[in-house]
Design a protein around this nucleic acid. Structure first.
Length: 891
RNA sequence: GGAUGUGUAGCUCAGCUGGUUAGAGCGUUCGCUUCACACGCGAGAGGUCGGGGGUUCGAGUCCCUCCACAUCCA
């Protein structure tokens, strides 16, 4: 492949073409030649309309490679290759998402370290381990600064990225590897912080102290988008509250929260409790007086129909607390344990001792046991607890149900609290073309169902730091209302390690000094800026974006899977809306999931995961891509080895058929002097050589295929395009090649041979380009048998390249006749080489006319050596067939 | 409970705005050393289009309803 002899073209066609080694060979050529490099200068000169820009999903390098990656990235690559051939400058960057818990945990375990934002940066730091840490116990991990931790992450993810890069290259993704970023690198951190600061300055981001979902394991606040409702075992406890006219029974799964009860709530229409509204009852054990109030969110048909409202047991409690202006009596702390000190409202309560001795400092689980025991003793527990499965909110990566804890957090307004903003963000979704279109309703569903703003601060140490400091007052208390912001030119900053403008480091933590915000941004708060990061929105040392940004933004497409419409897609829309007032892309191409052959989700725990590297090695990249391209956008697909085998067979067929089509030599050799080609141009004369009606017929069919294949890609339906090309190609091989063989060999004169040979070359030339977006390796291989340039930079075929005037019905008729001849031979169980001295072909009259046209080719292909008669009939069939089997060679 | 999608041959899927006898590939069966390909070629069998109702001259396709499955949200 590296040497291109200048000898005749046929010399480059191997005797036995093979798929083996194509990935390595052509992958190297593409890399050396910069085949897929974004032509920046040309794009800037020609402007936005000349560009097709892709907001490539940055994979989590520390995560695992799976067939889902192969699936959706192939979809994108097929579109990218089509658009490139269609003449657009394709901007196809690659990024790596190194934020978030998966990377944090991996770095932690690999190096045996633990991040601690309070520590100073150590420039000479060496980690205790490199992949050989023996213990995963937190106590054995060495605390290090955030910046040191980020550096270790940089070091490790570079290694992890290699596996992805190797696979992505092998699969032939036409990414521009020179446009790359990591979400934790300096540029991404600075971009993320800059966008956040602008949100703060415009009032789109704010901080608030409010009850929110809290993961006690990871000790961080959790956003609505990270929730997962799971079944969780619990038990209904029927508990008596003491009213003036006797007990009021409620049912609760969380009796340990009785100390934080602030009210009983029932539905306003509930006749059973209507008399109680406005009165008060006293809590069991603790004897705290709480009101009985009405609220429509109380479910009449659930449990007793009346519920205790605690601060806070769940999100409904928060709703009641806010809307009914109830007092705050929190006891659950950030660790998930109940606070140790006796709450002030329980001072003097008969349950004070119970609290201090058996409840305070305990986990929810232990506290529940203590409280239930006491209720049983006091007679306030009615009957025994009834086991139940309830839905509880979990952090998607957590193992314990979320608690609700009041903390100070940063939020970005996302329409979860403001009707008008919500409407505008839903409208943004209508400005994006979703493929398939129904995916838009997932967007709308999610946005319309938001019930709070986007929580962006996380109490983790690893990630992009929130670029904010707070002044400390004379008592050393932070003044959160007057945050100190850095200058954009100074980004990225780490407030835990750097002093804010106007302060020196020694003022940190001192009265009148400052304190850095200890938190980091939600990982989506950075990855929601991938168009800005990749497109050069922020340029260090400049107030203006890279001119590139105007040439690529808003981008053309965001490719992604449907599970992260609510997170990545929506967050990106929000950020772009605020920063640029536009949608971030015009189109969103949503891929489905990969299921195992039993239609179950592939997962490690089920042991049904296959590694993409092995799959590609076994079936070839083109075959795996064929499988992926057979799955339409938005549709879940089965992992299907059979489909890969079909793809592999197709690729091999392309090799063999191409070798054959090119093996007849130059059409001009038999075409005579009048057809001499001008030097360096071989495309323009060939159409004129095509004179035979059968040849014109096959090219007429191909013209139709070009139209359908183009329409497929234009409507983001690469599968339809592939199907059109593929079905033509098999007809081309099975019928046309067989019919034209004899004539192409010169069996019926020079003009007929020239017509056949020219047709073969024209058809192959078009078919290779139609297949190129899906099967980049085999098409490149064949293309280069006769050419120096890449098929992937060739122009997408148009109907104008092929002669007009042919009638597809000719090949269809002759093909049908050939089929019935084959059938006769097959039923007689003789080989296809058997001669047919006499036969009658029955066909409708209009077909018979076409059969006369192609009779010579039909005779040659069917070995119809003698009398051939025609008779009219409704369907195509044979009659009075005489067969002479080929004598089998004696053994 | 709500939203969205799916249900067509043993399997995986086409079937776009309703129009001959519902298609493809895989698998299966029967054949064929055929000069590009045995990693091949040819032929065959295989379907009450999830159920029911309706609109229409005509429904896999449109409407209603029910069932099943999947995903997301309660």
């Amino acid at each position: 492949m590296t040497e291109h002899p200048s000898s005749p073209r046929a010399a480059r066609i191997p005797d036995r073409p093979s798929l083996d080694g194509l990935e390595d060979a052509w992958g190297q050529v593409w890399e050396q030649d910069g085949t897929f490099a974004f032509p920046r200068d040309a794009a800037l000169a020609a402007g936005r309309d000349s560009v097709f820009s892709i907001d490539t999903p940055p994979p989590t390098a520390s995560g695992s490679l799976h067939m889902g990656h192969v699936f959706s990235y192939t979809h994108t690559d097929c579109m990218a290759r089509y658009k490139r051939m269609a003449g657009l400058h394709v901007f196809y960057p690659i990024g790596w998402d190194d934020n978030g818990l998966p990377t944090e945990k991996r770095v932690q375990n690999y190096y045996g370290v633990r991040g601690d934002a309070s520590l100073p940066y150590d420039p000479d730091f060496q980690p205790p381990f490199r992949g050989d840490a023996k213990s995963s116990r937190a106590a054995d991990e060495l605390p290090i600064s955030r910046q040191n931790f980020i550096e270790l992450c940089d070091e490790l993810t570079v290694e992890d990225e290699k596996a992805f890069e190797s696979l992505f290259r092998r699969l032939g993704f036409s990414l521009d590897w020179s446009i790359s970023y990591r979400t934790i690198d300096d540029h991404s951190r600075a971009t993320s912080q800059q966008a956040f600061l602008r949100n703060v300055q415009r009032g789109e981001a704010y901080q608030a102290e409010a009850p929110g979902l809290w993961d006690v394991t990871f000790q961080t606040a959790v956003a609505q988008a990270e929730l997962e409702a799971r079944d969780y075992p619990g038990a209904y406890h029927r508990v008596a509250f003491h009213g003036a006219d006797g007990p009021v029974h409620i049912e609760t799964t969380r009796p340990e929260l009785i100390p934080s009860c602030v009210a009983l709530v029932a539905h306003p229409d509930d006749e059973r409790y209507r008399p109680l509204f406005g009165s008060t009852v006293r809590t069991p054990l603790f004897d705290v007086e709480v009101p009985v109030v009405a609220h429509p969110a109380a479910e009449m048909d659930k449990g007793a129909g009346i519920a205790m409202c605690c601060t806070f047991g769940d999100l409904t409690d928060v709703l009641w607390w806010r809307e009914l202006r109830l007092p705050t009596r929190s006891v659950v702390t950030r660790t998930g344990r109940l606070q140790t000190e006796l709450p002030e409202w329980l001072a003097g309560s008969p349950g004070a001792d119970l609290y201090t001795e058996q409840v305070g400092g305990k986990t929810a689980f232990s506290a529940r046991e203590a409280i239930v025991g006491a209720l049983r003793e006091s007679g306030d527990l009615d009957g025994e607890p009834v086991p139940t499965q309830r839905k509880a909110n979990f952090y998607e990566r957590g193992e314990k149900p979320l608690e609700i804890v009041t903390t100070r957090q940063w939020y970005i307004r996302n329409g979860g609290r403001e009707r008008e903003l919500n409407d505008r963000l839903v409208a943004q979704g209508r400005a994006i073309e979703f493929h398939p279109a129904f995916m838009r309703s997932r967007y709308a569903n999610w946005v319309e169902g938001l019930n709070g703003d986007w929580l962006v601060s996380r109490q983790r140490f690893f990630g992009v730091p929130i670029p904010v400091w707070y002044p400390l007052d004379a008592d050393g208390e932070p003044d959160h209302d007057h945050p100190i912001l850095p200058a954009e030119a100074d980004l990225p900053v780490d407030p835990a390690a750097q002093a804010p403008p106007g302060y020196t480091e020694d003022r940190r933590g001192t009265p009148g000094g400052f304190v850095g915000d200890p938190d980091v941004l939600d990982t989506w708060a950075t990855s929601s800026l991938t168009p800005q990061i990749a497109g050069g929105w922020r340029v260090p040392g400049s107030a203006d974006p890279d001119p590139l940004f105007a040439a690529v933004f808003p981008m053309d497409v965001r490719p992604q899977a449907h599970d992260i419409i609510r997170t990545w897609l929506f967050a990106t829309v929000v950020r772009s809306f605020y920063e640029h007032g536009t949608v971030p892309w015009t189109d969103a191409a949503i891929s489905g999931w990969i299921l195992d052959p039993d239609r179950k989700k592939m997962s490690k725990s089920k042991g049904n995961v296959v590694t993409p590297e092995d799959v590609v090695k076994e079936h070839s990249a083109d075959a795996v891509r064929y499988w992926a391209a057979s799955g339409r956008l938005g549709t879940d697909a089965a992992y299907d080895v059979g489909q890969m085998k079909v793809g592999r067979r197709l690729a091999i067929k392309i090799l063999n058929a191409s070798k054959f089509a090119l093996s007849f030599g130059d059409p001009l050799e038999v075409a005579g002097d009048g057809a001499r080609l001008p030097e360096g141009h071989d495309g323009d004369v060939l159409p004129d050589l095509v004179t035979d009606p059968l040849d014109l017929s096959v090219l007429a069919m191909l013209r139709d295929v070009v139209e359908r294949a183009t329409a497929g890609f234009e409507s983001w339906d690469y599968t339809r395009s592939l199907e059109a090309t593929e079905s033509f190609f098999w007809t081309f091989c099975d019928d046309y090649l067989e019919l034209v063989k004899d004539r192409a060999y010169g069996g019926r004169g020079d003009a007929g041979a020239a017509s056949a040979r020219a047709t073969l070359r024209l058809a192959l030339d078009v078919v290779l380009r139609l297949f190129a977006p899906v099967l980049p390796y085999v098409t490149e291989e064949v293309w280069r048998w006769t050419r120096e340039d890449s098929v992937h930079l060739a122009s997408w075929p148009t109907v104008d390249e092929l002669p007009a005037g042919g009638d597809p019905a000719v090949l269809q008729a002759v093909g049908a006749a050939l089929a019935v001849v084959r059938k006769a031979k097959s039923e007689a169980k003789v080989g296809m080489r058997a001669e047919v001295p006499t036969a009658t072909i029955v066909a409708p009259a209009d077909l018979i006319a076409h059969l006369h046209t192609g009779e010579a080719d039909l005779r040659a292909a069917g070995r119809l050596t003698g009398t051939l008669d025609y008779a009219e009939g409704e369907t195509v069939a044979t009659r009075d067939v005489e067969l002479v089997p080929v004598a089998k060679p004696a053994r």
